[in-house]
Design a protein around this nucleic acid. Structure first.
Lengths: 305, 305
DNA sequence: TAGTGCTTTTCATTTGTACAAAATGCATTA
DNA sequence: TAATGCATTTTGTACAAATGAAAAGCACTA
């Protein structure tokens, strides 16, 4: 994550915004009830930052009415956060929006495969620094690379049946192999996070509408399943595939039907069950089947809609 | 590859230096004999750049006596490049050296796991821009990441047994799976290139000294073997591993003994034989064995020498 | 017709300064 | 004892002018 600030003019920094989100997440996950006191140093320790940005984030949350100053000193939870809509309370970073816009335009072909920084500056009306930052983020995610000399090139998009087939084949190889790895070991904590996230999707029909939430949960599942192998290269490979698919899906305003999401969700949970029961052969069979269905669903459809 | 220039003061740019190397490689690979004419526009097309940096690279090669101006116009090969030692002729990019130095110091623990840009600037006596560039390169290769707030963190096991094990495991998975791919198909032309390159190594003892030549042949073999699968993601994964290994080995000043290179060479040829005979199971067994030996050779040694 | 040599234009890096934000330290308080 | 509020130091970002390098164009030539 890049916390450089695109908006030096107004308000809290990107880091503070992000911390505010994560603080809400934490209040929710830890199940802190209204009136519970929150401690800045503790949060700073948890998130690995100093108190400064935490203070900024807390101020923001006070301003938004999520937290409340106590009579004497300190802050406490002011309202039930479980029903809170994050995006309504906290503004989106403009640089994040720009990133998504570029991703979409590139996937749709509106943005050429080869671009120069100078060409993007006027196009999106931002400074070179920001253009550079965006491109470097694409590069970090394996979605673009610098060309020798001038310019940048986006990686080939996953258009066409052929690319889909290759992607599926690669994922099947990497993810299934991860399960067969000798050092494979389930991290109970992460497994719990995966399970809770999936159950929240299943229980809350609203979260199934915008594919966004589902995509995050989906990516989290596959990435961490590979992560149990303890092999960073396997994890990186899965993450890269996730990034590619994210670009692809942002192209077509394609939205998975709710029942498809629900099915995938259950498949994930079945795989997780098998993995936690140490029945890795069964897990692999399920995973292979799961990926195959994703291929049929994704590769079969027309990419131009 | 990042071609930004660390040395604005003197001489040819990093890109020009790199092109000069690749031009020599190409003269060698294409087997251009002394007196053959070289064309700037053609080289520009091949390497995907404009004529400007090619011109700079050619000037450099003229200066070093590799090329020679013809009587009328144009350039031609002035000497036999097969016996040429690249590193003697062309200076290394200082930024490249710095990268290796940092890698080495980090592996030895001389550099702490968490660092700040401001701390590295005086330490290596370079500007902030270069420090940033280096750190971002580490990040791009998965060797470091930005911390929220201030600073960067190197991954836990940057170099050492653990990293070697994971790398081996990953390569075994990816390369062996490539052989099992349904669309696997040998490109006769490329197979011929691989064979010839290996035979040249075996026949010419000099090419076994500086590991440089061997590394190229080695990388070419593995990358194209995976390439026969027709799956771009498998090929990319192998290429990525090659790049990582190149950096780590050069950082450790590691040089394979001639007999080890010779053995690897023969193993490669045996694998190639099996593949061309369509005996993929045997090829896979050989490949797995080959990789395992590479692991024992690379991972078993002390990293501090 | 393709290559060379040169010029012009475009593009990207460098550098230095001003500024914003995070880290750190300390006195104070519950 | 640990959290808070505030001040100081450190770290990193934003911006703009200057510089250098690559791309693109053009006339000339073999």
């Amino acid at each position: 994550m890049d916390y450089s600030d695109a908006d030096p003019s107004d308000g809290p920094s990107t880091l503070q915004l992000d911390l505010a989100r994560r603080i809400i997440d934490r209040i929710r996950d830890a199940g802190l009830s209204v009136g519970t006191r929150v401690s800045a140093p503790e949060l700073a320790r948890i998130f690995g930052v100093s108190r400064s940005p935490i203070t900024g984030a807390l101020d923001l949350l006070v301003e938004k009415g999520v937290l409340q100053p106590m009579e004497t000193r300190g802050l406490r939870v002011a309202r039930d956060v479980s029903t809170l809509n994050l995006s309504e309370i906290l503004p989106n970073s403009p640089i994040e929006d720009l990133y998504r816009q570029m991703l979409r335009e590139r996937a749709q072909g509106a943005l050429p495969q080869d671009v120069s920084e100078a060409e993007l500056m006027p196009r999106y009306g931002v400074s070179r620094g920001i253009v550079r930052k965006l491109l470097m983020r694409f590069a970090a995610e394996g979605l673009a690379q610098r060309l020798p000399g001038h310019g940048w090139r986006f990686v080939d998009t996953l258009v066409g049946e052929e690319a889909y087939r290759e992607s599926y084949e690669f994922r099947a190889i990497v993810e299934c192999s991860a399960l067969r790895t000798p050092h494979f070991k389930v991290d109970k904590d992460i497994a719990g996070q995966i399970r809770r996230a999936h159950e929240r999707i299943l229980s809350d029909p609203a979260s199934r509408s915008g594919s966004d939430e589902w995509f995050r949960v989906n990516a989290f599942f596959h990435e961490n399943l590979a992560g149990f192998s303890g092999n960073r290269f396997l994890t990186d490979a899965v993450r890269h595939q996730n990034n590619l698919r994210r670009m692809q899906e942002s192209a077509a305003f394609f939205e998975l039907p709710a029942e498809r999401i629900e099915q995938s969700c259950r498949e994930h949970l079945a795989i997780l069950d098998a993995v936690e029961n140490a029945d890795l052969e069964w897990a692999e069979a399920l995973l292979r089947q799961h990926l195959k269905q994703a291929l049929e669903y994704g590769g079969g459809r027309d990419d131009n809609d």
